[in-house]
Design a protein around this nucleic acid. Sequence first.
RNA 1: GCGCUCGUAGCUCAGCGGAUAGAGCAGCUGCCUUCUAAGCAGUUGGUCGCAGGUUCGAAUCCUGCCGAGCGCGCCA
Length: 574
Amino acid sequence: MATLEALLHDRLAPAFEAVAGARVDPSLRRSQHADFQADAALALAKRLGRPPREIAADVLGSARLDGLVATAEVSGPGFINLTLADDALGPLLGAMSRDERLGVPRVEAPETVLVDYSAPNVAKEMHVGHLRSTVIGDAAVRVLDWLGHRVLRANHLGDWGTPFGMLIEHLADEGESGAAGELSLGDLNAFYQAARAKFDTDETFRERSRSRVVALQSGDPGTRHMWRLLVDESERHFLVLYDLLGVRLTDGDFRGESFYNDMLAPVVAELDRLGLLRVSEGAQVVYPAGFTGRGGEPLPLIVRKSDGGFGYPATDLAAIRFRTAELGATRLLYVVGLPQSQHFAMVFEVAREAGWLTPPARAEHVGFGSILGPDGKLFRSRAGDTVKLGALLDEAIARAAALIAEKSPDLDPETSAAVARDVGIGALKYADLSNDRTRDYVFDWDRMISFEGDTGPYLQYARARILSIFRRGGVTPPHDLAAIPVTAPPERALAIELLGFTGVVAEVGESLEFHRLAGYLFRLATVFTAFYERCPVLRAEGSVRESRLALCDLTARVLGRGLTLLGIGTPDRM
RNA sequence: GCGCUCGUAGCUCAGCGGAUAGAGCAGCUGCCUUCUAAGCAGUUGGUCGCAGGUUCGAAUCCUGCCGAGCGCGCCA
């Protein structure tokens, strides 16, 4: 379904072209002074050597606006203010209401998009540092999937490397059954720390750990078996959290670093064959174009360390080659913290130079900022250590439960618990996704779960209220109206906001700036509650009641769809 | 030293070259015999870090400075 901007564009573009003698973007946007405004006349003034107001007037003189625009006038220095015709809104809303997809078309050219996100480390519990990647990546998966792309989820587990020598050796010391018991209790951190402590203090243990790494890499069956046990226990722990978080990651999405082991040597060999490989201080490196170090000298990407081991750049390169060549992905998304932006820029550049990332295939670092505590420093527990993700989610749910018990004591225990989960987790996710992804944000329990203002619960509540109207009235809102007539100002404002959904979703599918979708939903909820205050629904009669019911229904569906795209639960009552 | 990001209301944040810079929270005034007050209406509050520049027009683009954070070869 065409957006209002697109419809206006189609009417104004020919007029601008006629006046300017060339194609001109009318430069449409929402306006405080009217429904929309077109700003292009101002930019044309210099080129045409005419006053902008005069250009704007000429454009309006030749534009065919009938049936869409009620009033159009030149304003200020040369803006064109446009007010939509009520008659034009009704049929558009009707079409949106009849469409299961709410007017959002599937993309014309679906791509295979791979989303690399979450990526916790085996033998370590997930912590607050994994929250953003998991939540943002999940939103990306949901939006792109709904837009019609083929989406591949990739959970790039940290399941390999030198630490595993020490972990496996510790497992061997503890005895498999004993350690398995410890691990299944979910105390991965204690296991890791015990191994770490021995590694730091015990020279012979350190030596055994090193040879254990060699055994692991050479495929020693006993060692591999213990490694597998660690991975399995860790994956079990991750899946519990993913389920609690309500993200779509499954056990089928785990594809850790170890998966690429056999591809590392060929990748380096290929770089060598292509003439990209150099040797520096015993390490095998590539110097991607455009990167310089401290003294202006070329900056190397170390693909093979001087001791013969492969670094993570080699794994990342192997993954790119695999994802484009074997999986056929054309859009690779890396939902990883912003501090790694230079690393990814270099890896992507090398991949391009090696021919593993050629158009239309491309990679994007979907970077994000850090979560900060109230003191403006990295978010940590009061004791100063990292906050476990499990504890964080539990607290979110507990805080929500306390408030629900207070505000809605009538809910039965089961519903109450389910709502607490949706609200607590939703609040947490909304706080994250409503902020510009690329910036740090301050984590504040009281703000996100106070349930006032721009929060997840406010949006959930707005939707629940609408469903409550239907329940109260014992009505099923109409889904088949040819048009949903709007006349009252709150109805019009709501209508225009509703019709903006298509554009926002399409834009977010490209930019992956989820705070724009969050902001849209908040505006929609705000406009709706204004409508709700001023326009009685059940007490209205005849066609007015019908159209208001339809507006309520559309709003509930858009809020529901929008929240779902963000991965936020949609309780029907609160 | 080099590079990246960021300085917007008391606090937390929007604002992707356009009109008097917006929102939430906090503060102040009102509104629950009427569809959920987790709400609504109104109101107070800003030299957009500073200085130049580009432009008809700059919070937005460029340069410099000040301040904060992060990253800069064999950890991932």
